[in-house]
Amino acid sequence: MESFIHVIILSMLVTTAIAIVKVKDLFAVTMLAGIYGLLSASFFVLMDAHDVAFTEAAVGAGISTLLILTTLSMTGRFEKAADTPGSNYKPALALALVTLTGALLIYGTQDMPVFGAADAPVQTHVVPRYLNDSAAEIDIPNVVASVLASYRGYDTFGEVVVIFTAGIGVLALIMSTASKAPVALRASMEEHVVLRIVSKMLIPLILIFGLYVQFHGEYGPGGGFQAGVIFASAFFLYAMLFGLTAARKVVNNTWVQALAALGVLLYGSVGLLAMINGGNFLDYNFLAQDDVHGQHMGILFVELGVGITVASVMIIIFFTFSTRRQRDGDPD
């Protein structure tokens, strides 16, 4: 039964992808991309990857759709017909290339272990140690969180820095420096009374849920990455319904930028603190008297740093895009 659902979801993914190739209306393409993200999230649930599904549902179906839509409103909704004279549109050539590459890759899969095999190299190398010893060494139930924040804390630090850098990059590229006096912008959703009231009810719940995901990440699916994205989405909702000017009052530009840096700083300081106490960088055993307690502290603060950075960078990205869009003309 499970493999039946499995095959259906995979077929739906392929169908959606083919539809994305065919459709010329970029608005519809964006919606299809959101569906694609949601489908892959359901697939991840089926594969026992609840943490990943969580993230993909928030990012793939939510934030990425929103960002692409904001960009579309600046660049135009329709793709130009491809076969205008003088274009170097060669679908046959591209198709041949793609088919050839795909065939080679499929040939390559012949050497891979079959799906679900317990003796595949992926399952036998370092993972048994994580699964067997983390209960004694770290003592939190969610192995994903302990691997993320403790065993591979170094990697995660790198990822957080990448996210931070991307945020800076977006700011550098499209931040509107000219502080044009805001022309008494009417929030585009002002007449949607029902929408505004329901959102007012929901926004606090979303924020609390974000905090729950942040601090319950050691015991169930969750953690800084998911929590940051969920937390940021509450601010997106507010900005979309009440207008950017109102949202700017809640979320001060300078503060969010400082917070984004603060998250990375918090992560790094935990590592440095371990060094000061005589351990290696990010070796949480040295943070407190006994090892397990130190690990708990380390993971808590590191996840907090991740959450702060992810939430702030997402808010920065969305607000920068929307401000740019307002500056470019239509306030809707």
Partner: peptide, 29 residues
């Protein structure tokens, strides 16, 4: 249990992915 390591790698990759996509969209703008 299923493999936690791949989950960790992909979990971070998804969020990094949206950050880099946003950068790409900024360049498009």
């Amino acid at each position: 249990y299923s493999n936690p390591l791949t989950h960790v790698l992909i979990l971070t990759a998804i969020v990094v992915g949206i950050a880099t996509t946003a950068l790409g969209l900024a360049i498009v703008v």
